[in-house]
C-alpha cells in the first residue's frame, strides 16, 4: 500500500514527514545498540514477508503484516518501516524520498496503535490471544488503508474516488491479514513465546 511519488500535495507531504520524523525519533530513542540489531533483522524479515503473494480467490495480494510487526516491535515499528520503505525505494524505486514520510506514517502509526490496544491480549492464552492477534492484523491494515485514503483525499477532491477504491480493495486483505497474523501468533506462542513479550521499544 504505497502512494507513489507525485500524487500527494505539498502540505500532506510535509505533514507526513513531520509525523513520521516524530515517530521514528521516538522509536530510535527507546532503542539501544543491543536491541537495534534485532530490529534490523526483523525489519529485513518483514521486508521479505512483504514479497510473499498470497492467493485471495482469483487474484493475489502481497502481505503487509504491519500489525504483527507492531505487536513485536512496539514503537520501534516506526524506524523499522521507514527503513524497509527506504530500501524499497533504493532497490525497486517504489516511491521516493519525498513521499517516504507519508507512507511511513500510514503504515507505522496503525502498527503502534494496534500494539498498544491489542498487545496485552497477545500475552494471554487461548481464544483471547487469537482474537487479539486477529484484531491486530485486521485493524492495522484497516487503519493503514484509511490513512492512505485520507492522505489522497486531503490532496484534492479529484482523488476522492481513488481513495474510496483503495479502501475497498483492501477489505479482503484486512481479513486475510487478520487470519494470518492470528495463526502466526499462535505459532510463535508455541515455538518462541518470548518473541511476543520482548517489547523492544515500549
Amino acid at each position: 500500500m504505497h502512494i507513489s511519488e507525485g500524487v500527494l500535495s505539498g502540505p500532506v507531504l510535509a505533514g507526513g514527514w513531520a509525523l513520521a520524523a516524530v515517530g521514528t525519533t521516538l522509536g530510535l530513542k527507546r532503542l539501544d545498540y543491543d536491541r537495534l540489531m534485532t530490529v534490523a533483522m526483523l525489519s529485513a524479515a518483514f521486508f521479505v514477508a512483504s514479497l510473499i503473494h498470497v492467493p485471495i480467490g482469483p487474484v493475489s495480494a502481497h502481505l503487509i503484516l504491519n500489525g504483527l510487526l507492531g505487536a513485536i516491535l512496539g514503537l520501534a515499528a516506526f524506524p523499522a518501516i521507514c527503513v524497509a520503505l527506504l530500501l524499497q525505494a533504493v532497490l525497486f524505486q517504489y516511491g521516493g524520498l519525498i513521499v517516504l514520510g507519508a507512507n511511513t506514517f500510514d503504515m507505522a502509526f496503525p502498527a503502534v496503535l494496534c500494539s498498544l490496544v491489542f498487545g496485552p491480549w497477545l500475552r494471554r492464552t487461548g481464544t483471547v490471544r487469537s482474537v487479539g492477534a486477529f484484531c491486530c492484523g485486521f485493524f492495522a491494515v484497516l487503519l493503514a488503508a484509511l490513512l492512505t485514503a485520507t492522505a489522497l483525499a486531503l490532496s484534492g477532491e479529484a482523488f476522492m474516488t481513488t481513495a474510496w477504491a483503495i479502501f475497498l480493495a483492501h477489505l479482503p486483505i484486512m481479513v486475510v491479514e487478520g487470519v494470518i497474523t492470528a495463526m502466526a501468533v499462535g505459532f510463535l506462542a508455541k515455538v518462541r513465546p518470548e518473541l511476543l513479550s520482548i517489547r523492544l521499544a515500549e
Binding site: 529485513a44 510473499i52 503484516l65 502466526a184 518462541r192
Partner: peptide, 29 residues
C-alpha cells in the same frame, strides 16, 4: 490456494522466518 491450509502454511512460514531472524540477530550481536 484460497483455503485455511494455505494461510496456515504461510503463517507458519512467516513466523519461522521471524524466529530464525530473531535468533540470528542475537548471535550476530
Amino acid at each position: 490456494a484460497t483455503d485455511g491450509r494455505t494461510y496456515r502454511t504461510y503463517a507458519a512460514l512467516v513466523a519461522m522466518v521471524l524466529v530464525r531472524s530473531y535468533d540470528r540477530s542475537q548471535r550476530v550481536y
